[in-house]
Amino acid sequence: MAKTIWVLVEIEDGRPARSSLEVLSKAAHLGRAEAIVLGSAAATVAPSLGEFGAEKVYVHADPTYDTYLTLPAVDTLSDLLQRQQPDLLLFPTTYDVRDIAARLSARHNLGLITDATDLRYDESERLEVTVPWGGENVVVATHPYQGTGIVLARPKAFSVERFEGRQAEIEQLSVTLRPESQQMKILDRVEVQSEGPALEDASIIVSGGRGLGKPENYRLVEELATVLGGAPGATRAIVDAGWLPYSYQIGQTGKTVKPTLYIACGISGAIQHLAGMKGSKYIVAINKDEHAPIFSVADLGIVGDVLTVLPQLIEEVKRRKAQL
């Protein structure tokens, strides 16, 4: 029998969030995907979810969810869990969903596996969740009991797919939201215009060094950062040389960063610089000098001229992004 998998779908700017759709598509492959959408825009979002794999959508279009964090959603999901026993709650890993998942898990004693990059049901219909651990290990885990479990998927672990022509059955939930759960109130939402690179928070950093030759060439670094959705950074050498303000500097002095991807362009890799970025998950380095120390920490090293490689790479990334 097909497994029933619930996906909590978040709404971003009036549309289903990409991270939710990734998970929804995966759920649709694993079994019967059912989506839950909460919040004032829920009703408008719900009908489109069939196309992304949902067979059924539970909707509760109430603005309370938009103002009060976590608890109203936990209550609603909890009520729903009293009525039905899905096999799995497969949620995206986002700021809000993490909080909801943690409380649901505690309230219903549900096993909780986070940071999944893949999951499947084996022949005996046992769930197998793949979780990378540290740099060296991959763990395969399961919920060792009958009943519902929770899995949080790593962002971008799955791709969004379209299930042409699929129509989701829509069920309006009639729950009464409890006033005592309306505690964590959002008073204000503030968008922060990023001034200069938000290096510490960026998950992708493109950084430049003296190998760029001239200050004008730094714009290639900025451009690549922009197309990748990352932030541009710099070595002490070019900050010292006055190409860029100090806020760009990465290194022992300067900022320490740990992005998922670090692209070092024309950086030789003095220890002062390495100290600030070697915690990056993936490091790509482009440098003319094949003996440059940066290559000793790089996952992918290109021995070549940054001024040739960067323009090509910018175009290639643009091209592939358009295809996604």
Partner: peptide, 14 residues
């Protein structure tokens, strides 16, 4: 050596 390597780059005298 470290300071001067940086200094040479800083004044662009490599």
């Amino acid at each position: 050596i470290m300071m001067f390597e940086d200094g040479v780059k800083g004044v662009e005298a490599e």
